[in-house]
Design a protein around this nucleic acid. Structure first.
Lengths: 138, 138
DNA sequence: CTTGAACCTCTAGTCACTAGAGATCGTATA
DNA sequence: TATACGATCTCTAGTGACTAGAGGTTCAAG
Protein backbone atom coordinates (compact mmCIF):
# COMPACT_ATOMS: atom_id res chain seq x y z
CA UNK A 1 0.00 0.00 0.00
CA UNK A 2 1.38 3.38 -0.97
CA UNK A 3 0.36 6.99 -0.92
CA UNK A 4 -0.86 9.17 -3.77
CA UNK A 5 2.56 10.86 -3.92
CA UNK A 6 4.25 7.51 -4.33
CA UNK A 7 1.78 6.55 -7.06
CA UNK A 8 2.45 9.88 -8.71
CA UNK A 9 6.20 9.24 -8.74
CA UNK A 10 5.84 5.77 -10.17
CA UNK A 11 3.45 6.75 -12.95
CA UNK A 12 4.65 10.30 -13.63
CA UNK A 13 1.06 11.46 -13.27
CA UNK A 14 0.70 14.54 -11.09
CA UNK A 15 -1.09 14.22 -7.78
CA UNK A 16 -3.99 16.58 -8.59
CA UNK A 17 -4.43 14.78 -11.91
CA UNK A 18 -4.81 11.46 -10.10
CA UNK A 19 -7.53 12.96 -7.92
CA UNK A 20 -9.13 14.40 -11.04
CA UNK A 21 -9.16 10.98 -12.69
CA UNK A 22 -10.81 9.52 -9.64
CA UNK A 23 -13.45 12.22 -9.72
CA UNK A 24 -14.08 11.55 -13.43
CA UNK A 25 -14.59 7.87 -12.71
CA UNK A 26 -11.46 6.65 -14.50
CA UNK A 27 -10.01 5.37 -11.26
CA UNK A 28 -12.05 3.55 -8.64
CA UNK A 29 -12.32 5.43 -5.37
CA UNK A 30 -9.17 4.64 -3.45
CA UNK A 31 -9.09 3.05 -0.05
CA UNK A 32 -8.44 5.48 2.76
CA UNK A 33 -6.38 5.50 5.93
CA UNK A 34 -8.00 6.32 9.26
CA UNK A 35 -6.89 9.88 8.56
CA UNK A 36 -8.66 9.97 5.18
CA UNK A 37 -5.60 9.72 2.97
CA UNK A 38 -5.74 7.64 -0.20
CA UNK A 39 -3.84 4.36 -0.36
CA UNK A 40 -3.11 2.38 -3.51
CA UNK A 41 -1.93 -1.10 -4.42
CA UNK A 42 -0.65 -2.85 -7.53
CA UNK A 43 -4.10 -2.79 -9.14
CA UNK A 44 -4.38 0.97 -8.82
CA UNK A 45 -0.90 1.37 -10.23
CA UNK A 46 -1.74 -0.76 -13.25
CA UNK A 47 -4.97 1.00 -13.99
CA UNK A 48 -3.33 4.42 -13.76
CA UNK A 49 -0.53 3.25 -16.06
CA UNK A 50 -3.15 2.16 -18.54
CA UNK A 51 -4.86 5.55 -18.34
CA UNK A 52 -1.62 7.45 -18.71
CA UNK A 53 -0.58 5.41 -21.68
CA UNK A 54 -3.94 5.95 -23.36
CA UNK A 55 -3.84 9.69 -22.64
CA UNK A 56 -0.34 9.86 -24.12
CA UNK A 57 -1.79 8.32 -27.23
CA UNK A 58 -4.35 11.10 -27.38
CA UNK A 59 -7.40 9.13 -26.30
CA UNK A 60 -9.99 11.34 -24.63
CA UNK A 61 -11.20 10.69 -21.10
CA UNK A 62 -14.47 9.55 -22.62
CA UNK A 63 -12.75 7.06 -24.92
CA UNK A 64 -10.75 5.73 -22.00
CA UNK A 65 -13.94 5.28 -20.01
CA UNK A 66 -15.24 3.11 -22.87
CA UNK A 67 -12.02 1.12 -22.97
CA UNK A 68 -12.22 0.51 -19.24
CA UNK A 69 -15.78 -0.69 -19.57
CA UNK A 70 -14.62 -3.08 -22.28
CA UNK A 71 -11.94 -4.40 -19.99
CA UNK A 72 -14.55 -5.16 -17.37
CA UNK A 73 -16.80 -6.97 -19.88
CA UNK A 74 -14.33 -8.87 -22.04
CA UNK A 75 -16.82 -10.71 -24.28
CA UNK A 76 -16.30 -9.55 -27.84
CA UNK A 77 -14.51 -6.47 -26.54
CA UNK A 78 -11.70 -6.83 -29.01
CA UNK A 79 -13.65 -5.52 -31.98
CA UNK A 80 -15.04 -2.62 -29.98
CA UNK A 81 -11.63 -1.72 -28.58
CA UNK A 82 -10.12 -1.96 -32.02
CA UNK A 83 -12.71 0.38 -33.45
CA UNK A 84 -11.91 2.95 -30.77
CA UNK A 85 -8.21 2.62 -31.56
CA UNK A 86 -8.87 2.86 -35.27
CA UNK A 87 -10.93 6.01 -34.99
CA UNK A 88 -8.15 7.48 -32.87
CA UNK A 89 -5.74 6.60 -35.66
CA UNK A 90 -7.95 8.32 -38.21
CA UNK A 91 -8.04 11.54 -36.21
CA UNK A 92 -4.29 11.44 -35.59
CA UNK A 93 -3.71 11.12 -39.33
CA UNK A 94 -6.04 14.02 -40.04
CA UNK A 95 -4.17 16.18 -37.56
CA UNK A 96 -0.84 15.28 -39.13
CA UNK A 97 -2.12 16.21 -42.56
CA UNK A 98 -3.37 19.57 -41.36
CA UNK A 99 -0.18 20.36 -39.49
CA UNK A 100 1.92 19.53 -42.53
CA UNK A 101 -0.05 22.05 -44.56
CA UNK A 102 0.56 24.63 -41.84
CA UNK A 103 4.24 23.79 -41.79
CA UNK A 104 4.47 24.36 -45.51
CA UNK A 105 2.83 27.75 -45.28
CA UNK A 106 4.90 28.84 -42.30
CA UNK A 107 8.07 27.89 -44.15
CA UNK A 108 6.92 29.91 -47.13
CA UNK A 109 6.16 32.90 -44.90
CA UNK A 110 9.48 32.71 -43.10
CA UNK A 111 11.43 32.40 -46.32
CA UNK A 112 9.97 35.67 -47.57
CA UNK A 113 11.54 37.45 -44.63
CA UNK A 114 15.29 37.85 -44.91
CA UNK A 115 15.62 38.99 -41.31
CA UNK A 116 17.74 41.96 -42.34
CA UNK A 117 15.25 44.34 -40.80
CA UNK A 118 15.72 46.64 -43.75
CA UNK A 119 12.44 46.04 -45.50
CA UNK A 120 9.68 48.55 -44.94
CA UNK A 121 6.92 46.03 -45.33
CA UNK A 122 6.99 42.89 -43.29
CA UNK A 123 6.33 39.83 -45.38
CA UNK A 124 5.15 37.83 -42.38
CA UNK A 125 2.45 40.35 -41.57
CA UNK A 126 1.57 40.81 -45.22
CA UNK A 127 1.19 37.06 -45.64
CA UNK A 128 -1.12 36.85 -42.69
CA UNK A 129 -3.19 39.77 -43.91
CA UNK A 130 -3.55 38.66 -47.48
CA UNK A 131 -5.03 35.26 -47.75
CA UNK A 132 -4.62 35.43 -51.50
CA UNK A 133 -0.93 34.67 -50.98
CA UNK A 134 -1.71 31.22 -49.64
CA UNK A 135 -1.26 28.05 -51.62
CA UNK A 136 -4.26 26.41 -50.11
CA UNK A 137 -7.68 26.77 -48.61
CA UNK A 138 -8.21 26.95 -44.89
CA UNK B 1 -21.06 49.72 -43.00
CA UNK B 2 -22.35 46.26 -42.23
CA UNK B 3 -23.61 44.24 -39.30
CA UNK B 4 -21.83 41.61 -37.24
CA UNK B 5 -23.80 38.90 -39.05
CA UNK B 6 -22.62 40.20 -42.40
CA UNK B 7 -19.04 40.31 -41.14
CA UNK B 8 -19.45 36.77 -39.88
CA UNK B 9 -20.61 35.57 -43.30
CA UNK B 10 -17.75 37.24 -45.11
CA UNK B 11 -15.02 35.98 -42.79
CA UNK B 12 -16.54 32.62 -41.77
CA UNK B 13 -15.95 33.62 -38.15
CA UNK B 14 -18.95 32.95 -35.93
CA UNK B 15 -20.78 35.91 -34.41
CA UNK B 16 -20.04 35.08 -30.75
CA UNK B 17 -16.41 34.54 -31.67
CA UNK B 18 -16.21 38.04 -33.17
CA UNK B 19 -17.57 39.49 -29.93
CA UNK B 20 -15.08 37.36 -28.01
CA UNK B 21 -12.20 38.72 -30.09
CA UNK B 22 -13.37 42.24 -29.37
CA UNK B 23 -13.47 41.49 -25.66
CA UNK B 24 -9.96 40.04 -25.84
CA UNK B 25 -8.68 43.20 -27.49
CA UNK B 26 -7.92 41.61 -30.86
CA UNK B 27 -10.52 43.76 -32.55
CA UNK B 28 -11.04 47.43 -31.76
CA UNK B 29 -14.40 48.20 -30.21
CA UNK B 30 -16.81 48.51 -33.09
CA UNK B 31 -18.88 51.57 -33.83
CA UNK B 32 -22.48 51.28 -32.76
CA UNK B 33 -25.84 52.24 -34.19
CA UNK B 34 -28.25 54.34 -32.16
CA UNK B 35 -29.74 51.04 -31.04
CA UNK B 36 -26.36 49.72 -29.80
CA UNK B 37 -25.66 47.26 -32.60
CA UNK B 38 -22.12 46.87 -33.93
CA UNK B 39 -21.28 48.18 -37.38
CA UNK B 40 -18.12 47.37 -39.32
CA UNK B 41 -16.28 48.68 -42.37
CA UNK B 42 -13.49 47.48 -44.63
CA UNK B 43 -10.87 47.99 -41.92
CA UNK B 44 -12.70 45.74 -39.50
CA UNK B 45 -13.10 43.12 -42.19
CA UNK B 46 -9.40 43.14 -42.95
CA UNK B 47 -8.33 42.91 -39.36
CA UNK B 48 -10.68 40.03 -38.69
CA UNK B 49 -9.40 38.24 -41.81
CA UNK B 50 -5.87 38.66 -40.49
CA UNK B 51 -6.90 37.21 -37.12
CA UNK B 52 -8.71 34.28 -38.67
CA UNK B 53 -5.80 33.48 -40.90
CA UNK B 54 -3.38 33.57 -37.99
CA UNK B 55 -5.66 31.39 -35.85
CA UNK B 56 -5.90 28.89 -38.71
CA UNK B 57 -2.12 28.74 -38.65
CA UNK B 58 -2.25 27.85 -34.97
CA UNK B 59 -1.08 31.16 -33.53
CA UNK B 60 -2.43 31.75 -30.04
CA UNK B 61 -4.52 34.78 -29.20
CA UNK B 62 -1.52 36.11 -27.30
CA UNK B 63 0.80 35.72 -30.29
CA UNK B 64 -1.73 37.46 -32.48
CA UNK B 65 -1.90 40.33 -30.03
CA UNK B 66 1.88 40.69 -30.39
CA UNK B 67 1.60 40.61 -34.18
CA UNK B 68 -1.06 43.31 -34.09
CA UNK B 69 1.12 45.48 -31.89
CA UNK B 70 3.94 45.01 -34.38
CA UNK B 71 1.65 46.14 -37.17
CA UNK B 72 0.91 49.33 -35.29
CA UNK B 73 4.62 50.02 -34.64
CA UNK B 74 6.24 48.98 -37.90
CA UNK B 75 9.84 49.99 -37.09
CA UNK B 76 11.98 46.86 -37.11
CA UNK B 77 8.85 44.76 -36.75
CA UNK B 78 9.90 42.35 -39.45
CA UNK B 79 12.46 40.57 -37.32
CA UNK B 80 10.07 40.35 -34.40
CA UNK B 81 7.24 39.06 -36.55
CA UNK B 82 9.55 36.57 -38.17
CA UNK B 83 10.68 35.28 -34.81
CA UNK B 84 7.06 34.73 -33.78
CA UNK B 85 6.41 32.88 -37.03
CA UNK B 86 9.57 30.81 -36.61
CA UNK B 87 8.73 29.74 -33.10
CA UNK B 88 5.29 28.79 -34.36
CA UNK B 89 6.97 26.69 -37.01
CA UNK B 90 9.12 24.97 -34.40
CA UNK B 91 6.11 24.01 -32.33
CA UNK B 92 4.19 22.81 -35.39
CA UNK B 93 7.10 20.57 -36.31
CA UNK B 94 7.30 19.22 -32.77
CA UNK B 95 3.61 18.38 -32.86
CA UNK B 96 4.00 16.61 -36.20
CA UNK B 97 6.84 14.53 -34.85
CA UNK B 98 4.87 13.53 -31.78
CA UNK B 99 1.79 12.65 -33.78
CA UNK B 100 3.80 10.49 -36.16
CA UNK B 101 5.08 8.48 -33.22
CA UNK B 102 1.50 8.05 -32.03
CA UNK B 103 0.41 7.00 -35.50
CA UNK B 104 3.08 4.34 -35.58
CA UNK B 105 2.05 2.91 -32.26
CA UNK B 106 -1.65 2.97 -33.08
CA UNK B 107 -0.97 1.13 -36.31
CA UNK B 108 1.02 -1.45 -34.39
CA UNK B 109 -1.79 -1.84 -31.86
CA UNK B 110 -4.47 -2.19 -34.51
CA UNK B 111 -2.48 -4.69 -36.50
CA UNK B 112 -2.34 -7.01 -33.50
CA UNK B 113 -6.10 -7.22 -33.57
CA UNK B 114 -7.43 -9.36 -36.37
CA UNK B 115 -10.99 -8.21 -35.80
CA UNK B 116 -12.23 -11.76 -35.78
CA UNK B 117 -13.51 -11.38 -32.26
CA UNK B 118 -12.25 -14.86 -31.52
CA UNK B 119 -9.27 -13.97 -29.39
CA UNK B 120 -9.76 -14.17 -25.67
CA UNK B 121 -7.32 -11.39 -24.90
CA UNK B 122 -7.66 -8.11 -26.68
CA UNK B 123 -4.36 -6.91 -28.04
CA UNK B 124 -5.50 -3.30 -28.01
CA UNK B 125 -6.21 -3.38 -24.30
CA UNK B 126 -3.08 -5.39 -23.59
CA UNK B 127 -0.98 -2.88 -25.49
CA UNK B 128 -2.40 -0.04 -23.52
CA UNK B 129 -1.88 -1.79 -20.24
CA UNK B 130 1.63 -2.96 -20.83
CA UNK B 131 3.91 -0.13 -21.66
CA UNK B 132 6.70 -2.61 -22.19
CA UNK B 133 5.17 -3.46 -25.56
CA UNK B 134 5.90 0.05 -26.85
CA UNK B 135 8.68 0.83 -29.25
CA UNK B 136 9.32 4.17 -27.71
CA UNK B 137 9.31 6.33 -24.63
CA UNK B 138 6.45 8.61 -23.82
C1' DC C 1 6.37 15.49 21.26
C1' DT C 2 7.54 18.42 17.74
C1' DT C 3 8.40 19.55 13.13
C1' DG C 4 7.55 19.79 8.42
C1' DA C 5 6.50 17.50 4.21
C1' DA C 6 2.65 15.40 2.29
C1' DC C 7 -1.99 15.08 2.25
C1' DC C 8 -7.03 16.67 2.35
C1' DT C 9 -11.16 19.50 0.15
C1' DC C 10 -12.77 23.32 -2.19
C1' DT C 11 -12.81 27.05 -5.38
C1' DA C 12 -11.19 29.34 -9.27
C1' DG C 13 -8.29 29.84 -13.37
C1' DT C 14 -6.52 28.23 -18.01
C1' DC C 15 -7.61 28.49 -23.50
C1' DA C 16 -10.54 29.53 -27.15
C1' DC C 17 -14.43 29.37 -27.75
C1' DT C 18 -19.82 27.68 -27.63
C1' DA C 19 -24.58 27.64 -25.88
C1' DG C 20 -28.53 29.53 -23.95
C1' DA C 21 -31.72 32.95 -21.67
C1' DG C 22 -34.20 36.90 -22.00
C1' DA C 23 -34.52 41.43 -23.86
C1' DT C 24 -34.11 44.85 -27.67
C1' DC C 25 -33.40 46.38 -32.57
C1' DG C 26 -33.90 46.78 -37.60
C1' DT C 27 -36.21 46.14 -41.69
C1' DA C 28 -39.45 44.13 -45.02
C1' DT C 29 -44.09 43.69 -45.92
C1' DA C 30 -49.28 44.68 -45.34
C1' DT D 1 -47.86 53.32 -39.88
C1' DA D 2 -48.21 48.89 -37.69
C1' DT D 3 -46.63 44.35 -37.22
C1' DA D 4 -43.91 40.46 -37.53
C1' DC D 5 -39.73 38.19 -37.06
C1' DG D 6 -34.96 37.45 -37.70
C1' DA D 7 -30.84 39.57 -36.03
C1' DT D 8 -28.71 41.63 -32.43
C1' DC D 9 -27.65 42.79 -27.53
C1' DT D 10 -25.64 41.44 -22.68
C1' DC D 11 -24.87 38.13 -19.34
C1' DT D 12 -23.89 33.73 -17.37
C1' DA D 13 -22.36 29.17 -17.63
C1' DG D 14 -20.31 25.12 -19.92
C1' DT D 15 -16.54 22.60 -22.59
C1' DG D 16 -11.90 19.39 -21.81
C1' DA D 17 -8.25 18.19 -19.16
C1' DC D 18 -6.16 19.71 -16.21
C1' DT D 19 -3.42 23.39 -12.89
C1' DA D 20 -2.95 26.58 -8.97
C1' DG D 21 -3.86 28.24 -4.57
C1' DA D 22 -6.01 28.69 0.11
C1' DG D 23 -6.55 26.92 4.41
C1' DG D 24 -6.63 23.03 7.19
C1' DT D 25 -5.18 17.98 8.68
C1' DT D 26 -2.22 13.81 8.88
C1' DC D 27 1.86 11.05 8.79
C1' DA D 28 6.44 9.74 9.90
C1' DA D 29 11.07 10.86 11.31
C1' DG D 30 13.90 12.49 14.95
Amino acid sequence: MFSIGELSKRTKVKVPTIRYYEEMGLLAEAERTAGNQRRYDKDGLERLSFIRHARDLGFSIEAILSLIELQDHPDRSCEAANSIATSQLVSVRAKIKQLKALEKELVRISKGCDGSGVSEDCYVLASLSDHGLCDREH
